[in-house]
Design a protein around this nucleic acid. Structure first.
Lengths: 256, 256
DNA sequence: GGTCAAGAGTTGTATATACAAGCTTGCTTG
DNA sequence: CAAGCAAGCTTGTATATACAACTCTTGACC
């Protein structure tokens, strides 16, 4: 159906055989962003230290000021930099943060930071729910729910344990999925679009089991987010996300 | 010291007597953003409906395409709009993503639970800020900022330690307040209405000092929220809120 | 010597322009 | 008529330019 379009595109812009289809030409401002990110994440540019000015970047990368500016601007909006009219641009002190305002896919989040993501699927089965879970999922105690336990990795280090109960009435094929290929959140979003969500955030100490999975000691404080999501049909799932406090932060940005 | 600067500025740009000092000249792209926000929030532009294209806005507001574009771009980054190359710009389907980490007064929160609230004011003075705080408050290292440390109690048990730096240029009478009578947050809101805020949430172990104040052991995990608030004038304050994880939770409710 | 002024450097806003790239529509053509 | 193409609209990227506004340093003047 749309093949002719692709043919046109390929012939015009991807003439070299074997060339990867993705990001054949990276936008200049993205190159600059990437460069700055690397400097910060590698520790070469410390917090509060000054970042090259727009004019300096203009020369270094042979781009116009507007292009250099765009890189700095976007990194500022993303919270990596702080700018001050008249005095310059500086490395912010908050690095890895995710947005609580958005229900996000942790895989996307990690990819955005330029890091490698993978997941291990620890458990995927059907379980009888206890009373607490039953109430929260709008089921009856003793009913069957689907349960998954997935460990998320950033650069091969465990970063988050996800334990999730899913309402089987609303998501039929949950047990057939492979959550090393698609995150539960991404799958659920495609099956039953979210209409509502609540979060509860608390600080806890990891249990022995969880500590072992996340490779942390038993006195490491963890952020635990309990997320309950609805579709138009009702409560879809109940997720408990546990991350070591020293590796993971939540960030939010409200505008009134 | 810096008065001459202000004089120069006033004479050049604020020639009319009685003219308010704030927002005398609103940036054009902000006007456009405001216009679009109002359309969406008033319901005149429904979800998924098409927003005027860059060229249309260019004509309507008599600006260049780059300026119109900037308005659309920023609203997209803020999640109000969705853009698609080739087809147009549309109202996003996530609207009132309000009350996440709703900026609330802890006193109100405790009263709502039917509990008793009171506060102790530990410190209230002017301090020289270090570089980190200076940057975040848009001051210079060594400048003076106001600092307050207030301990909040729920039913006579300490529930939250609030440590706050305040920009003295924007809130003049901060040191004259009695924060056992009004919370810093409530006072600041009355003085300089908030327009923006960022939060960072992490799980930490309390330091010895903080542990003593909060009456918790040194292995109690704590939720630590760092909140940076803006008014239309700039960064108003920088607050660090620390609460024992077993006594305090953050909740949020998103509706799509 | 302290005050003020000027200048250099920085970010902020705005415009005009050009071309690339993706989507939609409708017309042409076989 | 249907397939395919092209035109026209959309957003995306990039440049060059100009001036405004803020900060800091330097230096001159009183």
């Amino acid at each position: 159906m749309r093949l002719y379009i692709q043919v046109r595109v390929y012939s015009a812009h991807y003439p070299v055989l074997g060339m990867t289809m993705t990001q054949v030409k990276t936008a200049k401002y993205r190159v600059i962003k990437q460069h700055i990110c690397e400097k910060i994440e590698s520790g070469q540019w410390l917090e509060h230290s000054k970042v090259p000015s727009e004019n300096e970047l203009t020369e270094q990368f042979s781009v116009s000021r507007m292009t250099a500016r765009r890189a700095l601007q976007e990194l500022t909006e993303q919270g990596l930099l702080v700018r001050s009219q008249g005095s310059g641009t500086f490395v912010a002190n908050f690095k890895s943060q995710s947005s609580l305002l958005e229900i996000r896919n942790i895989a996307d989040e990690i990819h955005e930071r330029g890091h490698q993501y993978h997941a291990e699927q620890l458990i995927l089965n059907a379980v009888k729910v206890n009373e607490e879970v039953a109430i929260l999922l709008a089921l009856k105690a003793g009913d069957i729910a689907y349960y998954s336990s997935v460990l998320h990795f950033e650069n091969n280090a465990p970063i988050q344990l996800e334990q999730r109960f899913v309402n089987p009435k609303l998501v039929a094929n949950y047990l057939e999925q492979d959550f090393t290929q698609i995150t539960p959140h991404a799958y659920l979003s495609s099956e039953a679009p979210l209409t509502e969500a609540t979060h509860e955030v608390e600080a806890v100490l990891a249990s022995e089991d969880i500590g072992r999975l996340l490779a942390i000691s038993h006195i490491t404080p963890c952020l635990q987010v309990k997320r309950r999501t609805w579709s138009s049909q009702g409560v879809v799932s109940l997720a408990t996300l546990t991350s070591p406090g020293n590796k993971y932060r939540l960030g939010s940005h409200l505008i009134f």
